[in-house]
Amino acid sequence: MASQPLPRNGDTADSAGRPLGPSDAGPSLVLVDLSRRPGASPARSRFSSSFRLLSRALVPALILGVWQASSDLGVVAPETLPSPTEIISAYAELIRTGELQSAIPTSLARALTGLALGAATGLLLGLFAGLWRVGEELFDAPLQMLRTIPFIAMIPLFIIWFGIGEQAKIALIFGATIFPVYLNTYAGVRGVDQKLIEAARVFGLSHRLIATRVIIPTALPSILVGLRYAAGVSLLALVAAEQINARSGIGFILINANQNQRTDVIIAGIIVYALLGIVIDLVMRVVERLALPWRPSLVLA
């Protein structure tokens, strides 16, 4: 009986011992190098950073160029949409008179006061409803119902309750910022993996330690998302709040500009609102990075 040839290196054999070639062995396995790639050189990193900054500034620069050209060519009337140079002149006028320097701190104080009160209330209610069943039964249904009411619709009621002073403005921002923080806190607490809680119980942690060392740190990303969203909502509510008999702030500048038909000042005030929103969002991003240093930044390309 002739002996069967042994399979060569890289080949396989069937159940009868006959050697199989590479074409008969099915799809071949491919090894993928998963080792960490070396970092880019400093020069290449600087080039990449500069390219990203230029790409971010390209679209705004094109918009400003088209805007200025449309105004210069008379395509858009200056009463409808003033040119960027006219808006810069409006900023120079507001700075020269001191209106802008006094308006920005006033508006920021209103927004941050309402945000602090609303975020603190939403955080406490979200933790109470998420950690204890009695809190859910008491607060979840009323808050879910109230959050569907647009905060702008509450302006007449707030005027009746608080008058036309600062209390009504802060109350409107407060009412608008409760719900984003509450919803994200409640969802973050209820979304904690039950296996983590069971493991904490196995190690003998008390209910207080489970809440402070397991549940709240795990729910922190969701809580910070709610806080970041509430920061943006606070500026939206600020725009509406400063229409209530405003005698200071950016809203006061807009009301005067509307009465005097100063479109350039109106657009300048709107841009200030937008810049405040960008600044607050950047601050919230820094807070997220400081509070969540372990969270990686996942970017595909």
Results as ranks from 00 to 15, higher is better:
E93H: 11
E93A: 09
E93C: 06
L94A: 10
L94T: 01
I95R: 11
R96H: 11
R96N: 15
R96D: 11
T97P: 02
G98Q: 13
G98H: 10
G98I: 15
G98E: 07
E99R: 07
E99N: 10
L100S: 02
L100N: 11
L100W: 08
Q101H: 06
Q101C: 12
I104A: 13
P105R: 00
P105E: 03
T106E: 12
T106P: 14
T106F: 13
S107D: 03
A111S: 12
A111E: 00
L112K: 02
T113F: 00
G114T: 00
G114L: 00
A116Y: 01
L117N: 15
G118E: 00
G118F: 01
G118L: 02
A119Y: 00
A120P: 07
G122H: 03
G122E: 04
L123V: 07
L124H: 15
L124V: 09
L125S: 05
G126D: 05
G126H: 07
G130Q: 13
W132T: 05
W132I: 07
R133P: 14
R133K: 12
R133H: 14
V134F: 08
G135Q: 07
G135K: 02
E136N: 11
E136V: 06
E136R: 09
E137M: 10
E137P: 13
L138E: 06
L138K: 03
L138R: 05
D140G: 09
D140Q: 10
P142M: 01
L143H: 12
L143W: 08
Q144Y: 09
M145C: 07
L146D: 12
L146H: 14
R147I: 05
R147N: 09
R147H: 05
T148M: 15
T148A: 10
P150C: 04
F151R: 09
F151G: 11
A153T: 07
I155E: 04
I155M: 14
I155V: 09
P156I: 05
L157W: 15
L157I: 13
L157H: 06
L157E: 03
F158A: 05
W161N: 08
W161A: 14
F162H: 03
I164W: 12
G165Y: 15
E166W: 13
E166S: 08
Q167E: 15
Q167G: 04
A168I: 15
K169V: 02
A171Y: 09
A171T: 03
A171M: 14
L172Y: 12
L172Q: 08
I173N: 07
I173M: 09
I173W: 00
